[in-house]
Amino acid sequence: MQNAINRRLFLQLAGAGGVVWVTGCASTPGNTASADFYFVQLSDTHWGFKGAAINPDSAGTFPKTIAAVNALNPPPDFVVFTGDLTHISDDPAERRQRLKQFKAMAATLTVPVVHYMPGEHDASLDNGAAYQEFFGATHYSFDHKGVHFIALDNVSDPHASIGAAQLQWLQADLATQAKDARIIVFTHRPLFDLYPSWDWATADGAQALALLEPYSDVTVFYGHIHQEHHQMTGHIAHHAAHGLMFALPAPGSQPKRTPIAWDATAPYKGLGYRRVAEAKGSAATLTELPLQGA
């Protein structure tokens, strides 16, 4: 019974319109009502992508997303972009142009705090040089209302590696935390081998997970695969977010990882963003918000 009530509250909180679904794993819907705060994860906006068969509204999808986030009431404490802000161009000038346009548009988010992270489309062709000109550091940590957040960069090295230097930084950063501290990690690629045949992995991700392993309360939010996905490695939960330009097929479901075609009968299908509600003493509550109907 308690669950039913909580679920109703939860659905209200999740906002009007659109289908809301609650993910399983370490999530419990009931906690939202008593949440300390929530943040929004946006991923894979791929600004600059063109392809009418995949997304005929490629210029309008990001503004639509921004409007949806700005309409959230109460607003989130912060927004995090987990990479692939822009779609790759082989021309460095065009890459900077896309990053610049993205930054100007993201500035229209009314949420005062926005955290950025690169994806391989933003950073892998120049080791993150252009990205850093616009958005600064590619890995960092911060604390918010009792939660320790860590952004890890597994894209600036085109080999999809975090690298020894950053792993050392991670180790030092974690050393400041109690073993039972609440830790949330943001990355672009999965830290575990989700599907290496499609490059859905991090070359030295296992080393990062080994450093995180001694901590009892670790959750990872990532992007890159343009679909919802939930998996545990040991006691660490990993949650992939929907993309916001095109959807990708389920791992291994077809020979190639080609984007899923636009469905004119269901525009924006497969695109969406995520709310994560945090409450002391309970697992994070995830709400997937589809862009369809938003």
């Binding site: 790759i88 082989d90 892998s124 894209v155 085109p158 045949s197 499609w198 490059d199």
Partner: peptide
């Protein structure tokens, strides 16, 4: 596959 990101056609 190519596992070093090389540009706009890398994924293919």
């Amino acid at each position: 596959l190519c596992d070093v990101f090389c540009g706009s056609g890398h994924e293919q």
